[in-house]
Computed example of a mutant assay.
Amino acid sequence: MTASATVAVAAGQAPARRRRRRSPAPLAAVPLLVFTAIAFGVPAAAMLDGALTTGDPATGATAYGTGNLTASLQGAYRTALLGSVELSATAAGLAALLGLPLAQAVVSSRSRALREAVLTASSVLANFGGVPLAFAFVATLGNSGVLTRRLGLAEHGWSLYSFWGLVLVYLYFLVPLMVLTIAPALDGLRTQWREAARNNGATTLQYWLHVALPVLAPSLLGGLVLLFGSAFAAYATAAAMVGSTVPLVTLQISDALSGNVLVGQENVALALSLDMVVVAGLVMAVHLPLQRRSSRWLD
């Protein structure tokens, strides 16, 4: 066999060997896909089935229909859904405004120990919530809290058990989450961009308005959407603090699951859960493209 023929045969066998080596690779994802289908698909299917199942209070017969979904978008349920959206949007917006300069201060700091300490603390605080967080704020800023009595906040109309009180509590874990989200994007800003802007006579404000913020815009919007989703899904903190004082969809779901509904509307809780899944799906549909767009500039 000639040398050229040998090369041709080797070239033809190389893709075949490559195909044989790569063919088992997709099989490695099968366990993950199966687990995802069981852990998420089965509950989602059960929730959808229950949300579309309506019962007749007189006969007890069940049938498929959109009665539960319609009920979940009316009256007190609609008020709770809009209240959750308003609370989440407000808390997320304030957390983004507070978290961005804090993250920039940490990223631009020359102290590595300070940066690691802040990021570590942010990782802990971003996951700190529920009843312990509610108790901490009640003991501090509640009606008989330490700061409330010392500063006389109650005399000025302050109430922790209100919309703005709940926003303040949510900021406790949303601001650290924003720091963790936006810090990698701030790290990706090139020093050459700042130097080029400075060499062309741009001030620091002009650099941020015309260079840095446009580049960071996808990451900022993605972080804002992530904060919104985190606040929208929070339950334990609000349940322990305000109860039914502030209308929230998560609290309405809890009431419906505990049987605090009219006869025949037992599955309204599942319909409300489906509404939350739709909102979360819209949040992810916005977040993922923004994340891919920001990676083009900052990678």
Rank of each mutant, 00 (worst) to 15 (best):
V7M: 10
V9C: 01
A10H: 12
A10S: 13
R17G: 07
R17Q: 09
R18I: 01
S23T: 03
S23M: 11
L27P: 09
T36E: 15
I38Q: 10
F40S: 10
V42S: 06
A46D: 05
M47A: 05
A51I: 00
A51D: 03
A51W: 07
L52H: 02
T53S: 10
T54Y: 11
T66R: 08
A71N: 12
Q74R: 13
R78P: 14
S88Y: 08
T90V: 13
G93D: 09
G99Q: 06
P101T: 03
A103H: 08
V106A: 01
S109L: 04
R115K: 15
A117H: 15
V118S: 13
S122L: 04
V124R: 15
L125I: 11
A126P: 14
G130Y: 14
A134N: 06
V138L: 10
V138D: 07
L141F: 05
N143P: 14
T148C: 01
R149K: 10
G152L: 03
A154I: 14
H156K: 15
S159G: 07
L160E: 12
F163W: 05
L166P: 01
L171T: 02
L180I: 05
L180P: 14
P184V: 00
L186I: 10
L189M: 06
H210S: 10
V211I: 00
V211F: 03
P214G: 00
L216N: 00
G229K: 04
S230D: 11
F232V: 06
F232Q: 08
T237W: 04
T237D: 09
T237S: 09
M241H: 00
L248R: 09
V249D: 07
V249C: 06
L251R: 11
Q252E: 13
A256K: 12
L257M: 12
G264V: 00
A269G: 05
L270I: 05
M276V: 10
V277F: 11
V279D: 10
L282S: 06
R293P: 00
R293A: 08
R296H: 02
W297N: 04
